[in-house]
């Protein structure tokens, strides 16, 4: 039996009829059409699908849309405000924190959450904190540089 689910994404309410097996990642991408959130491994490992649900970073491929009913979700499309990139996005731009870009939305959602939890995260804590996000291009060096730049930018 289908269920009616209402999820606020980036400040906009979306109500859809979904099967219980619909994943939050699919709700965001296929039902609402926000394709910035990527699905990489689809097995809760790569972190490309990371979004914020009620302020908490989660892997949207491992959450059912029915579980997220009534919650407030932020995706990569909701990060820039008033035409200005979020500090983490700007840092990825400045530090060339990506090559193919597939993992980038998840990296940015993960790092922005990490820096909110721990504004003074050390480089080691940042590297360790990124254990749930896999990048197969960069070797992580520029991603970590971007996180460090964002840490400074956010603390000012």
């Amino acid at each position: 039996m289908n269920h009616t689910v209402t999820i606020t994404i980036n400040g906009v309410k979306h109500t859809r009829e979904v099967e219980p097996r619909t994943l939050l990642a699919s709700f965001i991408r296929d039902h609402v059409g926000l394709t910035g959130t990527n699905v990489g491994c689809d097995t809760s490992q790569c972190g490309a699908c990371t979004v914020h649900v009620d302020g908490q970073a989660v892997k949207s491929c491992t959450v059912l849309a029915v579980q997220a009913d009534g919650s407030s979700v932020t995706t990569i499309e909701g990060m820039a405000q008033g035409g200005k990139l979020h500090a983490v996005q700007q840092a990825f731009w400045d530090q060339h924190g990506l090559q193919c870009g597939y993992c980038t939305p998840g990296m940015i959602m993960s790092i922005s959450y990490m820096l909110k939890q721990n504004p003074n995260a050390s480089e080691e804590e940042i590297r360790h904190g990124l254990e749930g996000n896999i990048c197969r291009c960069t070797g992580y060096q520029n991603i970590v540089k971007a996180a460090l730049q964002a840490r400074e930018a956010l603390s000012n």
Binding site: S44, G47, Q56, V58, T62, Y113, Q117, G129, E131, G132
Partner: peptide
């Protein structure tokens, strides 16, 4: 356990 996203759920 897992990573920060997994620990949140």
């Amino acid at each position: 356990i897992g990573d920060q996203m997994i620990r949140n759920r």
